[in-house]
Amino acid sequence: MLKKTSWLLATAVAVTFGGVAQADWKPSKPVEFVVTSSPGGGTDNFARVVQSIIAKHKLMDQSVIVTNKGGGSGAEGFIYTKMAAGDSHKLTFGTNNAYLLPYVAKLAYKADELTPVAAMALDEFLLWVKADSPYKDAKSYIDAVKAKPDTFKMGGSQSKDTDQTLTSLIQDATGAKFIYVPFQGGGAAGVQLAGGHIDSNTNNPNENAGQWKAGAVTPLCVFSPTRLQGNVKVTATMGWSDIPTCKEAGIPIDKFQMPRTVWLPGGIPAETVAFYADVLKKVSETPEWKEYIERTSQTDRFLGGADLKSFIADDDAKNRKVFEAEGWVVR
């Protein structure tokens, strides 16, 4: 209760004071949320949660229309945004695919043609194996893979995307060699693991939580600098916070995370960017947002302005190194 009151107070303060500062610009017609995934995907959930929170707390006067433009792994949505240069009523939701896609496919947009607004959460990656496999920790699994290169199957979502990048990083860091099998999405990769058709995957917590609870799969480690939050036990013996970080477990990768990002088209005045950043900041302070973060076991991290720019530059450089090493970069 106290939490809720203090939050309300915070919002009230933000509205009274923030409102004065940002009174210069306001949307004058319904805002389009461009979702760079098909309905039901992770980005779709992200955008729709933001939409529902904005509606519930009336954070914007204008209504929100969600459109899905998930073609070409999301490139469709980003190109659509690029074409809408100068349009202040289109907010585009994505991940780090916004700036990574143009590396691996010949696309008619560049990352600097979009205006970053905010990153609202970091989705985590874990190394999962089937629950009844003989491997109880990351080290013994990696050792087994090293002993028999090119026989263990690592499943993931799509090709040349986060899961395959991470697989490549694991291979570089440990010397193990996997067969990477791309599936249509993380959900499919999760079921394939539960059915024993692949040996491991690097799904996000949310994609495998159900199968973990049901005792079909088990996590070995998380690619995060610190352990995950949450004291609740998911299975009889383990909760999210009991999962060791991969560094602890012997895979020398200190972090691999995927930001959930929001963009505007190019050529947008700074005050407009500030308006949306402010709305999204308020969204990230609501109890509903905390509930979404907790349910999907992501890391709650709001990034805007200069922090966001340096985060993107950093993440971009790290991923590009892998792409170049793997020869995925086009042109």
């Binding site: 691996v104 249509q184 995925w328």
Partner: peptide
Amino acid sequence: VGMDTVSGGL
């Protein structure tokens, strides 16, 4: 036509 899941290319 379009994005190919397996190769990640257009």
